[in-house]
């Protein structure tokens, strides 16, 4: 058994820790707070509310695997939702047009930041910090006041539900209510699967790990380090754009204060999911569980009755701190043996 643990790769150890902690937490919630957490719909609601976070976290993990970081994602999400809202309501735009706007904003941020980080060798944190402030500022410039989108086609899309067969529950009136997910969740799960496949089985995917693990040796293996880093930021930007649209679809409004702190949650989810800040180690499945753990703990905090806004911030920070320390200890131990 001990040998087995020793032979596990960093990725697998951290992934195992995450999944175990998530299961303990969810089962604990089911046992202690029976009522809510027993229903499958509670689980689906967590997914519905956090589909955007899941998408941006996937991008974040990818960038972190190459050894960088992107803290502009929250700002990009806010900018995307505001721009799409303005386009739909003030300019009578179409759904297709708004999706294209979201993708364009995401790609633009990804490309500029990726260029600065990869080809000009500027610290990713500084570049994306500037990106975050730029996106937040631009959101206010696009439109100052928050408003709900009234466009009919959009509202229809927003209210679309996809029923999950077999997992419904009987409500107090005795009627059967089937469980549902929003379209955003399907998009998010597709992205998780695609990214997982790319990272595990393609040449470019392994390149991301190689660059993050050791830049020098990746270069000697003939990997184009700069292009790989650029690509990681580009994909992260694109996913931030998609995540922005999914977020927009979920809340249905534009506001400069949307998704505040989302970059933090995305980083926290990636770290909890076992992605190392130093690069080279990480797993998209881990990120998926990271997002679930984070949102479950938020749900637990609010259902226990600590409803004040500050508790969420403090619990997430405490959880992040715990995982950072666990990582640091696990890796230090492994190095010694």
């Amino acid at each position: 058994m001990k040998n087995k643990i020793k032979n596990m790769t960093d990725t697998n150890i951290l992934l195992a820790i995450t999944i175990v902690i998530f299961l303990i937490m969810y089962l604990g919630a089911v046992v202690v707070l029976r009522s809510g957490f027993l229903k499958p719909q509670t689980f689906f609601n967590i997914l519905n509310a956090n589909a955007a976070l899941l998408i941006t976290s996937c991008g974040m993990s990818l960038v972190m695997i190459t050894g960088g970081i992107d803290i502009s994602v929250g700002g990009v999400v806010a900018l995307v939702s505001m721009s799409c809202a303005v386009y739909l309501d003030y300019h009578d735009g179409s759904i297709i047009g708004s999706v294209l706007i979201a993708l364009a904003i995401g790609l633009l941020f990804g490309a500029v930041q990726g260029f600065l980080v990869a080809y000009l060798d500027i610290q990713p944190f500084i570049v994306t910090l500037a990106g975050m402030f730029f996106a937040r500022g631009m959101t206010t410039i696009v439109n100052t006041t928050p408003f709900n989108v009234a466009s009919e086609a959009f509202v229809a899309l927003k209210n679309m539900r996809i029923n999950v067969p077999g997992l419904g529950s009987v409500n107090k009136m005795g009627n059967y209510v089937s469980a549902y997910v929003e379209p955003g969740v399907i998009v998010a799960l597709l992205i998780v699967i695609i990214l997982f496949v790319i990272l595990r089985w393609t040449r470019q995917g392994r390149g991301f790990y190689a660059v993050g693990g050791n830049r020098q040796s990746a270069m000697m293996l003939g990997i184009n380090v700069k292009r790989t880093k650029f690509l990681a930021h580009l994909i992260c930007g694109l996913l931030a754009g998609i995540g922005g649209y999914v977020y927009f679809l979920h809340v249905g409004s534009g506001s400069a204060s949307h998704a505040s702190g989302m970059e933090m949650n995305a980083i926290a989810s990636s770290i909890i999911g076992g992605t190392l800040l130093t690069g080279g180690v990480g797993n998209i499945i881990g990120t998926f569980f990271g997002v679930l753990s984070l949102s479950t703990i938020q749900n637990i905090v609010s259902s226990v009755g600590l409803d004040e806004a500050w508790w969420t911030g403090i619990t997430i920070a405490a959880m992040l701190c715990l995982f950072l320390v666990i990582q640091s200890v696990v890796l230090a131990r492994k190095k010694r043996t």
Binding site: L120, I126, A130, G131, M132, F134, G137, M138, T140
Partner: peptide, 20 residues
């Protein structure tokens, strides 16, 4: 609220100019 956008541009210009 829009100030950060302008400052971000200044930061980017600064770091680009000082990049090796």
């Amino acid at each position: 609220d829009a100030l950060p956008a302008y400052k971000a541009v200044v930061v980017i210009i600064l770091v680009v100019m000082s990049a090796p």
